[in-house]
């Protein structure tokens, strides 16, 4: 008889798996955020990169420290803290003091995520809660927008970044001031939070994620579509409403956070529509100019209910009932 081999590894099937793991998914999200970062660096100058790096670093540090304190296995290798940090930075005005941004990172990573046991166990999106906490806690710095003049002018002046205090298009819209053109809104040569300005760059990132099958287009489409339809019904300019504020960033990068959004496609569509409705309600009626983050947070909280009503049904069961 031939040589025997003993002590082979015995494990449950399947013995192969898809090469995509959590870290690759998160890495793809970071890659998808790069175009938006590039545009905001172009618009706001080097401080945009600095802010992003500081937030990402702070998030990784808090993740590492809290795992250490909890005596648990370290999870910074899964890139999720970096994603949270970058998205949080994208939600802040570029002139925000760094220490405040770091508090936001603390809220996001420690309060929202690690207290509940870490990745996958939080019920609300860390970056959203971090942003809302900063928004409510530091109302003034969070709504102080220092920004370049119009991009074309900056190029003509060749003076690089010339910071003046300005208002975001949504604030101008709320105040009834003259608005930037839709092209400017789309390209992102406007004022606003660091990563929110360029709809185009965010869209490129979103398409990358859809192509890489990291996100399903259900939530972004439902969200953006609802915002557009509602603005038409309410008599606003849909292109402006979609490109302004955090709709693009929220719909593509924050509402699609797996952990805090429904698991089935029908649930995701409900989730996206809900986000769109609440966003427009807050924009049109509440005292805050922007409602994307509140909308996503509320839908995060509703996610368990959405999940339980959109449970996938067993194959063939209805069919059988119909036959009978």
């Amino acid at each position: 008889m031939a040589d025997k081999h003993t002590n082979l590894i015995v494990s449950a099937a399947p013995h192969v798996c898809n090469p995509t793991d959590t870290a690759t998914i998160m890495r793809d999200v970071v890659i998808a955020l790069i175009p938006a970062l590039a545009v905001s660096t172009y618009v706001f100058g080097i401080r945009a990169i600095l802010m992003t790096v500081i937030c990402a670093a702070a998030c990784v540090f808090f993740e590492w420290a809290s795992r250490k304190i909890m005596h648990r296995e370290n999870t910074i290798g899964d890139w999720s803290a970096i994603v949270t940090g970058v998205i949080l930075a994208f939600n802040l005005p570029v002139g925000m003091p760094f220490w405040m941004a770091i508090i936001g990172c603390f809220v996001a990573i420690v309060v929202v995520k690690q207290i509940f046991g870490g990745l996958g166990q939080n019920f609300a999106n860390p970056a959203i809660v971090g942003r809302i906490a900063l928004f409510i806690g530091f109302a003034t710095p969070m709504t102080t927008w220092s920004v370049t003049k119009n991009m074309s002018q900056a190029i003509i002046n060749n003076a690089g970044v010339d910071a003046v205090t300005g208002a975001t298009p949504l604030a101008m819209w709320n105040a009834g001031a003259e608005l930037p053109s839709n092209l400017e809104m789309f390209l992102g040569t406007i004022n606003g939070s660091l990563g929110e300005v360029s709809a185009l760059a965010l869209l490129i990132g979103g398409i990358y994620l859809v192509v890489r099958k990291v996100i399903s287009p259900a939530i972004p489409c439902a969200f953006i579509g609802t915002v557009a339809v509602l603005s038409l019904i309410m008599g606003f300019d849909p292109i402006f409403q979609v490109c302004a504020g955090g709709v693009m960033l929220g719909a593509i990068f924050m509402a699609t956070d797996y952990v805090t959004s429904p698991i089935t496609t029908s649930g995701r569509i409900i989730f996206g529509i809900g986000c769109g409705i609440i966003t427009m309600l807050i924009r049109a009626y509440a005292s805050y100019p922007e409602g994307v983050s509140f909308a996503i947070l509320l839908m995060n909280i509703l996610t368990p209910h959405i999940d339980s009503i959109t449970r996938s049904k067993l194959n063939g069961v209805e069919k059988k009932g119909a036959k009978k």
Partner: peptide, 13 residues
């Protein structure tokens, strides 16, 4: 605490 955060968004509405 996080749940109560989202109710703040409706202030003034």
């Amino acid at each position: 605490s996080i749940t109560s955060l989202c109710f703040l968004g409706f202030s003034g509405m």
